[in-house]
Amino acid sequence: MNHPYQRPVVPSVQPRSRGCAAAVVVVLTLLAVLCVVGGVWFLLSRERLETGHFEAAPVCAEGETEALAGLVPGYELALEEPVGNGQNAFGEGWQCRWATPEGQGETVPAFATLVVVASPGPGGVLTAEDNFAHTTSNPQAAPVADLGDEAAAWYRTGGFPAGCVGVRESNLYLETCYGAAADYAVRNSVDEERAMEGAEELARAAVAALPG
């Protein structure tokens, strides 16, 4: 009695098919390409997927460097306020402002500001990149070499002019601005070049003072 189901007999040598062989080659080639592309994507994106170096932004006191003392003699902390909180996608940190004491002093009035925002958690580096790109989108912004992971400088007009520098270091965005009067009467501000130099000096000192 024959069993109703009979296993098919597999020939000892499989019949060859050029179409199947070509398809196998295509699939293997595609897999190889995907492996290479995937490896490159991982290498390029690995830092973005990491949380970054900073769990929190430094406080204003960390920005009180020798550069600040030289650019704003006798400075006083005029502003120290938090920026954002744990609910904000861009992160959280501090905004700080220092200025020469009011009244008739021995130095020409000057001021400096610092904004520092950390973006902890997965994707923090990417968030800091977005913060940097958004803030430095000014058409007049120019790249600054050898400062953080990326940096740019621009001149802020209107009100009291100032030079500014934005820096990204891992998952941290940092921005410094500097302005000063050209004389004691505060009729004019220092020229653009001096303001830009001051802002960059402050930025380099602030980055150098970062922990770790």
Rank of each mutant, 00 (worst) to 15 (best):
G103E: 06
Y184P: 00
V165H: 01
E106T: 10
A205R: 06
E201T: 15
A23L: 15
A110K: 06
F54P: 04
P139S: 04
Y178Q: 08
G70S: 11
A128R: 05
A162R: 12
F132N: 04
A151M: 02
L43M: 14
G19V: 14
L31H: 08
P122F: 07
C35H: 12
A182F: 02
G39E: 01
V24N: 10
A61M: 10
Q140K: 13
W41P: 05
E197W: 01
A141I: 06
A99E: 15
S45K: 10
A153K: 09
P109T: 00
E200M: 02
E62C: 06
V59Q: 11
T107L: 04
V24S: 13
E197Y: 05
Y173M: 12
P4F: 07
T113H: 05
A152L: 02
W94L: 08
S45F: 10
T176L: 10
S189R: 09
A110I: 03
C35N: 14
T136W: 07
L71M: 05
R194W: 07
P8H: 08
F111H: 08
P73L: 01
L28R: 08
C20Q: 15
T113Y: 02
N188V: 11
A69G: 10
E150F: 05
F54K: 01
T107R: 10
A181M: 09
V72G: 02
C20I: 14
F160Q: 13
V13F: 08
A199S: 05
G84H: 00
Y178N: 04
E192N: 04
E201G: 15
F111S: 10
T29H: 01
G52M: 04
W94Q: 11
V108G: 03
E169N: 07
A56R: 13
A142Q: 15
G124T: 03
L202S: 00
T113S: 09
L30F: 13
A182L: 05
L114K: 05
Q140H: 10
D130F: 12
A195W: 04
V165A: 01
H53P: 03
A99Y: 02
E80I: 02
G121I: 00
A61T: 14
N88I: 07
Q14F: 11
E169D: 14
E200N: 07
A153E: 13
V115G: 10
V40A: 12
L77T: 10
V26M: 12
E80L: 06
E197Q: 15
V186E: 15
Y75F: 15
A22Y: 05
V190C: 07
Q104A: 14
A208K: 11
T65A: 04
P122V: 07
Y173K: 04
P122A: 09
A151H: 01
